[in-house]
Design a protein around this nucleic acid. Structure first.
Lengths: 346, 346
DNA sequence: ATGAAAGCGCTAACAA
DNA sequence: TTGTTAGCGCTTTCAT
């Protein structure tokens, strides 16, 4: 079944059928109705492939995500997917598994005529190969929108968030609660959010006259297990901090795991503010204060940005659209300071 | 840049270039190398769209999932994605949001020449419209593989799991622990897994001579909030059960939420076994016994099944391949029975 | 081993 | 309002 078959059945030309299918107008209503009926009855579905080839444009967008199973990214995907379906776009999902080579392979495999745009959460802040691929896509008129993670020295469109400020607010809150010995479990230094959250942490301390201590900044790499071990390191210090700022959701969980396993208790033994919420914790009455942000909306907005940039891809090439999502502190009690922490007594 | 440009640069015909690109052989090594070099230098990437149109086959598969944010489905997606990338397939991700109309719209929009196969976790066990769409795809030679949820009276290929047995084992375990008053929070009756888990529950009770009690079977619809209220109902009964079997991960969380909010404690006040694990609970030292299964592998296997059925889509049309993943009980203590439950004392 | 050319299903410019 | 026709970029059969 193709457009010629339909045309024959309707005694019209394929062009007319095409006009009807695409609501191009300039077709007598009778003719249009007749054609529509035939399409309905035969169950004919136009070939998207042929259409794409003919018009040189597809309705597919590619989404490249580092960790499909992280609920943070699932939420972004949800936002993207919902908005994409509004635009009648299809979403290709590619998982890079935080692996830079895999990311390159994905980008390389992206035949540019199959996709209309690219949404990507890049693995690294510093990787110039990925940046090069993305630039080439932009030059071909395929808009690129980064999500959450920026790339150094490039100015791609993107939806980010106020990482520095979020972290700053969190640490400032801890300070105002009376904490002075505040540690951070950092994200990878190859990631912009990781870097910025560290900077927010440092600025908060400095602005309040608290000296930075090397041993209070340990690396958790945004990963659960690494963060668990980072927490362990902090508790092995001579002078255990009274509060920890954790740089992402998995980091928070890693620390919580360590706390539970060690028989420690939040607030009593250690205070905590994390970056990004963890859905079920609050429901389960595990009260952890966190820096929140509109995650679903970030995906949604990214899709919108892509769409806008696609529409005006010829003009305005020089204007980069970058959105920064607000962050806000959600206090649930884990930030509280009590003067004599159990662990400091030991 | 197209295949003609490359051909011209290499002083050969487009056919030869095509042979090189697709490793078809029958090309002198010199010629092949020359062409490869030119392709390399120009950065030419063949048009997947044109290729698809020409050969009538694409490398895309569609995955339709009811709830992107549920970690259970994220794991399946991960398995699918990994295996798909092995086959050099791209995965379209569609979210039906447990909405049957949305599912129909997605299916309807799936231009059959854009996709090579369909992986779907259908919203409903009973919906014949979806079934009809899927059948039509199969008839066109586009293989369909169901995941997790079967469709009534159809025999699609699929990867399911031993829901009945898993539930049976869980409830049997509770009985052997000494529980007699065992409730179930059920999934939707329009879902096969929901139904089968209920059947497993009932069989376990019956085989052990425990009469079924209507008021001990409440509906949680596989949803968090509904399950929370279901738990509330159970605790409002004159004769509160001593144990609950929860039909999926969200159900378990809903019940845990109720338990926590009510100041109740697992085991002391109520025993619990759930279906499907919840990643972070165990890490956070919330010890809930659950029925586990190889979720990632289910996605992985589904992709393999699709691939196999694609390869032999012409022969063997009548042989349906259905895989059932094993389930196993993971005891973490929450199944334990103590004789005088606090809540029964009231 | 290589090339010529038809065809995949659709669109759009041009003609009528 | 409708039709004709030349592509879109690739594959593949059939010659050579």
């Amino acid at each position: 079944m193709n457009i010629y078959d339909i045309a024959k059945l309707a005694n019209v030309s394929p062009a007319t059928v095409s006009r009807v299918i695409n609501n191009r107008g300039n077709v007598k209503e009778d003719t249009a109705n007749k054609i529509k009926k035939i399409i309905e009855n035969t169950g004919y579905i136009p070939s998207a492939t042929a259409r794409n080839l003919s018009v040189g444009v597809s309705k597919n967008i590619a989404f490249i995500v580092p960790d499909i199973e992280n609920p943070f990214f699932s939420k972004i995907l949800h936002g993207i997917s919902d908005r994409a379906s509004y635009y009648n776009y299809n979403v290709f999902m590619f998982g890079s598994d935080e692996n830079i080579e895999k990311e390159h392979r994905i980008l390389k495999s992206l035949s540019s005529d199959m996709i209309l745009g690219i949404l990507v959460i890049p693995v690294s802040h510093d990787d110039m190969i990925t940046a090069q691929y993305l630039k080439e896509f932009e030059e071909k008129g395929i808009p690129v929108v980064l999500i959450d993670r920026d790339i150094r020295n490039c100015s791609f469109h993107g939806v980010f968030s106020e990482d520095e400020d979020g972290a700053y607010q969190a640490v400032k809150c801890l300070i105002e609660e009376g904490h002075k010995d505040i540690a951070i479990i950092t994200g990878p230094t190859t990631s912009r959010p990781g870097l910025n959250r560290l900077m927010g942490y440092q600025r908060a301390l400095q602005e309040h006259g608290i000296p930075l201590r090397e041993e209070y900044m340990v690396s958790g790499e945004f990963k659960l297990e690494e963060s668990y071990h980072a927490a362990k390191k902090l508790f092995a210090l001579n002078h255990v901090p009274t509060a920890i700022f954790t740089s992402n959701n998995l980091t928070t969980i890693g620390v919580l795991q360590f706390i539970r396993e060690s028989g420690l208790k939040l607030v009593r033994d250690i205070s905590l503010i994390g970056f990004d919420d963890i859905d079920y914790l609050n429901l389960l009455n595990i009260k952890v204060s966190i820096v929140d942000r509109p995650i679903y909306d970030m995906g949604y907005q990214a899709m919108d940005l892509l769409q806008n940039n696609y529409l005006k891809r010829d003009e305005n090439r020089l204007i980069t659209q970058r959105i920064s999502a607000k962050t806000w502190l959600v206090k649930r009690g884990s930030e509280k300071h009590i003067l004599f922490k159990g662990v400091n007594e030991r």
